[in-house]
Design a protein around this nucleic acid. Sequence first.
DNA 1: TTAAACTTTCAGTAATTATTGAAAATATAT
DNA 2: ATATATTTTCAATAATTACTGAAAGTTTAA
Lengths: 168, 168
Amino acid sequence: MDLEEAKLQFIQAWGKLGSEWGINRTMAQVHALLLITPEPISTEEIMEQLSISRGNANMTIRDLINWGLVEKQLKPGERKEYFYADKNTWNIARQVARERRKRELEPVIKVLNELTKVDGDSKDPAYKTFHKTVKDINKLAANVDKLFVTVLNAEESWFWGSIFKIFK
Amino acid sequence: MDLEEAKLQFIQAWGKLGSEWGINRTMAQVHALLLITPEPISTEEIMEQLSISRGNANMTIRDLINWGLVEKQLKPGERKEYFYADKNTWNIARQVARERRKRELEPVIKVLNELTKVDGDSKDPAYKTFHKTVKDINKLAANVDKLFVTVLNAEESWFWGSIFKIFK
DNA sequence: TTAAACTTTCAGTAATTATTGAAAATATAT
DNA sequence: ATATATTTTCAATAATTACTGAAAGTTTAA
């Protein structure tokens, strides 16, 4: 396999994984492209390489910037904007964890907290089951949330080192 | 808020979270309904409670069974099938981890392993960046995979206990 | 067997989500 | 000011994904 084919496969694989985990496929693909591109590139180049429209490229790049995964670079004397992705995988993981926690996990935990408080007849199996399930899921979600926070604040080698010291 | 409203909210919240993380919304909702229902219920009841068609209910239930989250129960002397969800949240987490690992993580790790082997000119920045990125992501993915396996084999209290002993 | 009770399938349709492309907006240079 | 380069927006459209409902299939009982 040559480099060009390998690049395409990487972009495809990353896009597929993204879409399976609720991230827009194009967004994952643009990110993948930037990850394997040494220098900042322009919207034009992204459009060409992935065969997507200007509108799509523009919106996707904005999203990636909002996710903190890509940054804009301006070349002196040039009007055009160039884009560059942080290539440190631990930063990427952290950034994704941070955003998904904020956007998706926190809201659901908030709802679960409210639902935990709902009162009812403790003799009623329907109430008992509801209450226990919500409480248990809430607890699990809170633990996952804590784990996310830990990831956010940890250094990569320290994190995995500590994890696999116990779970060998 | 009364119990009925709380149930609806729970089903909604769980469905939303599911869809944000790449799980069919209806599947997450049926699962949520079964999670808060003390006794096994029939397809009819699921159809009614969630206002979905028989076909949708049937396919969704099969999926949940394939994911190992729901089991079929037969009542003696009755022809109808009833469905029941395991309510142990740790089992649920484990089961989801097991399936997603198998369906989504393993395939991508396989591709990444192949791409790591692609050879090229070590003077070429395009190749260097590609190779390093793929290698790094591969390593991260392998660690996430290992973490999944650990979850799969661990007891809940032991797992969280060990985690938060280090990451206090 | 036949019929009744129930489950499964899947072509057609609906709903959702993603993308295009051209017009509007913005920024810079002359 | 005007022209030019570039980015942004968003209504229209396309692509994808999910759902329905009725027909076909299966199982059990009489």
